[in-house]
Amino acid sequence: MIYVGGVPFSADSSSSSSQGNNTLVALMEHPILVSASSSFMAIPERKFSVSEEYGSERTRQSKCVYIFQREYATVDPALVDLVGTDEATTCVGLVLRNRKSGMTSVSHMDFPNVVDIGLTQMLSLVVDHDADTELDVHLIGSFNDALPQHADIGTRSESHSKLDRHSFRLCMKIVEILQRRREKFHIQTLHVLGHNTGWNSEGNAVPVFNGFLVETSTGSIIPASFDRTSRCPDEIVRRIRVMASFGDPSWKGRLLDTYNTHTDQFIIAPCSWTMSLSHSALALRDLSDSEILLNCSTSPSAEGPDFVDNERRIWDYLIQHPDWRDTFPMKQPHIFARSADGGWMRQ
């Protein structure tokens, strides 16, 4: 059940099939959530880095957990200071935080078909089974990818003009499942779709913010972006796991589980890929930057400046390691423990 401002939320629905649509539309127009989104928009974006050479503030003392697309992590505030994600265009970052314990689960959802089971995965360690659990909820990311160039973003329907676009369908599914479940979800931030839409120099609609950080001790949410040094551990292998999961039936409808809440470790389970993926990488590597964007992104005009480079690095790895067993000898996972400086160390 969704709550806004401490009050149960409901939206008129003429049919069950339109329930998620009407709920999302009404939430996007709710004065409390509109005000919260405006406040979030005014927060300066934090540039997160663990390397001083990039000119960002040094943050090695902070114990951070970073999640990629289709991953989730539930963190204990006694062990982790910050948890976050970025690189979201049509994806949505979802935060669930237990008001009593501070246990916080964050996911980077990319398609509607992972929402139902994915939400159950997230709730497994944040819900108090002996009492009604009060959960603060934040949805950040996605943008109005239904908008044509130079459209009027101020129109009343900018957040829900078309149902065939990635962002709207994903957001609609999330609020539909939240409303359907018995837990008490207090939505604090709904910075998605039209609220998170701006314009680039070519006049294309783009997300204002692509990521965020959660301060686990307080539950505060701030806009954030990460550089390559902070998207860790095991960056390239985890990116490949996302690709491989689409063809792996064991991951159907599920978020990727990489982080162990109790031990504060990353455990990257083995994933397999076929030689054909390496052959595809050889062909894709020869594409131009614009062709890579058109072929590999749901929002080619809205991707970050390092999107193409990240894709090429994935393909280079696959070309150099066509046999997945070279990456996971004896089918053993990659395990990373927290180092003394707050980073990660391979075990």
Rank of each mutant, 00 (worst) to 15 (best):
P8R: 05
P8K: 04
S10N: 14
D12E: 09
D12W: 03
D12A: 13
S13E: 02
S14G: 15
S14P: 11
S15D: 14
S15V: 06
S17P: 01
S17Q: 09
S17V: 07
S18C: 04
S18H: 08
Q19E: 11
G20Q: 10
N22E: 15
N22Q: 14
L24E: 10
L24H: 01
V25P: 00
L27E: 07
L27H: 07
E29T: 09
E29Y: 02
H30R: 01
P31R: 01
P31E: 15
P31D: 15
P31S: 10
P31T: 08
I32R: 03
I32N: 04
L33E: 03
L33Y: 07
L33H: 07
A36M: 04
A36P: 12
S37Y: 01
S38G: 14
S38Q: 14
F40G: 04
M41E: 12
A42R: 05
A42Q: 08
A42Y: 05
I43Y: 02
E45V: 10
R46T: 09
F48L: 13
F48T: 13
F48G: 09
S49Y: 03
S49C: 10
V50G: 00
S51Q: 13
S51C: 04
E52W: 10
E53H: 08
Y54H: 06
G55N: 14
S56C: 10
S56Y: 14
E57W: 01
R58I: 11
R60P: 04
R60A: 15
S62K: 09
K63S: 11
K63I: 13
C64F: 05
V65L: 02
I67R: 00
R70C: 05
R70S: 14
Y72P: 05
A73I: 09
T74F: 00
D76K: 05
P77L: 09
P77C: 12
V80I: 14
V80A: 13
V80C: 15
D81H: 10
D81P: 09
L82D: 11
V83A: 11
V83R: 02
T85E: 07
C91R: 12
V92R: 06
G93P: 01
V95W: 00
L96G: 09
L96T: 05
N98E: 03
K100I: 01
K100S: 12
K100A: 11
K100C: 08
S101I: 03
M103G: 05
